[in-house]
Write a protein that binds this DNA or RNA. Structure first.
Length: 250
DNA sequence: ACCTATGTTGATAC
DNA sequence: GGTATCAACATAGG
């Protein structure tokens, strides 16, 4: 699930219901999800503090804490979700959790364990948020290199937040082939790509996730272009399964 | 049983 | 430096 739109919803959930509550306990026993911290380390740093702010760049979230405490970083990985004030999963899928003094709870529920909880997260290698990059920034960063366009927009150091599904949806909306060489796009094409990306993000945040996109339901065997009805093409591009319309995406 | 697939990221090799 | 590949994790399905 989690690409930029899902992460934004998780951030908003925490902003609305997770701030200002005093932390009474921390479940940080999963030393893979909490690496490189040892069990108990995150707990020791956060006990008695409260989350003050809920921030996001791309798919990365972080929260400042009071009393000059460390920031807490959360990443949803490939299958993570944030839950607030829900009972713990009986099956051990809650890989990290804060229990508040009032009895409530904030949990990172993640079967796959590819999510992350970490103190003082390193955000230095992230590009600008995919929804916030200015036109000049976007032209400059996306419109270079010899990698296929899809790989370029999914590179988190170029632009933060675009995942596999959002990439396919965006390229479809923009009418651009995922196979185009990033550096070969015109300024007009780059501007159009930026517009398509911002619209796809806006729609997905409103709709509840990137799955609510127009192309996404057609990304399956025999799927057809929602625009012209031709059979979608499938291939591996940038290491990820990619679907696109061979007619409309040039 | 065995192979493939799946929203991510990181290390590694060319 | 940029790009490509594989591995990390767990589960589902053909």
């Amino acid at each position: 699930m989690p690409e930029l739109p899902e992460v934004e919803r998780a951030r908003a959930l925490i902003a609305a219901g997770g701030l200002g509550r005093r932390i009474a306990a921390v479940e940080d026993r999963d030393s893979y999800v909490c690496r490189p911290h040892a069990p108990g380390e995150i707990e020791a740093a956060l006990l008695g503090r409260r989350l003050l702010t809920a921030n996001r760049i791309g798919k990365a979230m972080w929260f400042e804490t009071d009393e000059d405490g460390p920031d807490l970083g959360l990443h949803l990985g490939m299958a993570g979700r944030v839950l607030i004030d829900e009972p713990p999963a009986d099956n051990a899928w809650d890989r990290f959790a804060l229990t508040f003094e009032d009895g409530g709870r904030l949990a990172l529920r993640d079967k796959r364990r590819l999510g992350r909880a970490v103190l003082e997260p390193d955000l230095s290698r992230l590009g600008p948020d995919a929804g916030e990059a200015t036109r000049a920034e976007f032209r400059d960063r996306v419109g270079r290199g010899t990698a296929p366009l899809k790989a370029r927009i999914m590179d988190q150091s170029v632009l933060a937040g675009v995942g596999n599904l959002l990439a396919d949806e965006t390229l479809w909306r923009a009418g651009l082939s995922p196979l185009r060489t990033a550096g070969g796009l015109s300024e007009e094409e780059l501007d159009g790509l930026r517009r398509a990306l911002r619209a796809a993000i806006r729609d997905a945040v409103r709709g509840g996730g990137v799955h609510t996109g127009r192309l996404i339901p057609a990304r399956r065997r025999g799927g057809r272009c929602p625009g012209c009805g031709v059979k979608l093409q499938r291939a591996t591009v940038g290491g990820r399964t990619t679907w696109w319309c061979p007619e409309e995406q040039v």
